[in-house]
Design a protein around this nucleic acid. Structure first.
Lengths: 132, 132
DNA sequence: GAGGGAATGTAATAAAATAACATCTGATTT
DNA sequence: AAATCAGATGTTATTTTATTACATTCCCTC
């Protein structure tokens, strides 16, 4: 990505402050102090950030999260472990998963552009303190 | 699932008429002739159908699709190839993918409850008639 | 400093999902 | 048969998420 605009930086900073998922409207609220007034300001910034790989969209939560790696810009896929108890999100190694998807897709003659991989369950920390 | 109620049957029939994804509001429109008037009638039926595995929710499309297998009730995961050109959706064999996810999750000490696997790209048919 | 493309601002609206509350239906118990 | 209760329904209103449309500003280039 060339260079971030002011709005893009603000949105990215907000997401990187905790690396946890936030909805567009939550981000809007967090950024009102910085002059944000309308959803579109957030959505436009997010669009570019997602395009560049600095931010990922979590389809199952309708939320956005800052990339936890440096180089997601280079891979077209990200995979997430989403803890239903503490709501934490961890990006995980998807090489194996991606290979498996590639094989299945190939069998079907399907060309993959992007994979949405979101695993819902219970993280190690929550499993420890709770049988849920 | 015990037995389908009237509303559940109507929604399931609508989805099984083409096995293609439909939003809740599309279903509502299709079912107005049958007396449906409010979104909740659709959402309530969908909730039960998804729970039983007869219908899957496509997170990346905010849409619902009838299960293409018989026994999805028994597996807690479904994986989809979504063609961005013709909008067709194919449920694919996820055993390999599920194993790969299981391995990655295990490394992180994460307990999987449900996996969202939605692969976006171009199906064989569209690839044939178009370079997109 | 004029022109043009990208980024912004703002208001309005659309699309997706849920909350709240009243009502009905059918099985079970008394 | 009347009382009871859970599950399914109906209906209105509201919330949450996302986009359309259009005016304005900023910055680079010529």
């Amino acid at each position: 990505m060339s260079e971030l605009t002011r709005n893009q930086s603000l949105v990215l900073d907000a997401l990187q402050s905790d690396f946890q998922p936030a909805s567009a409207y939550t981000l809007l609220d967090r950024l009102r102090d910085h002059g944000f007034k309308a959803p579109l300001q957030v959505y436009r910034a997010l669009e570019k950030l997602v395009e560049s790989g600095l931010v990922h969209r979590l389809e199952s939560l309708n939320a956005f999260v800052a990339c936890q790696h440096d180089g997601c810009g280079r891979h077209r896929a990200a995979a997430f472990l989403i803890c239903e108890h503490c709501k934490s999100v961890t990006e995980f190694d998807h090489a194996r998963v991606q290979r498996a998807i590639g094989a299945s897709a190939k069998d079907a003659g399907f060309t993959v552009r992007r994979s949405v991989i979101e695993v819902e369950g219970c993280c190690a920390a929550c499993e420890g303190r709770d049988t849920g």
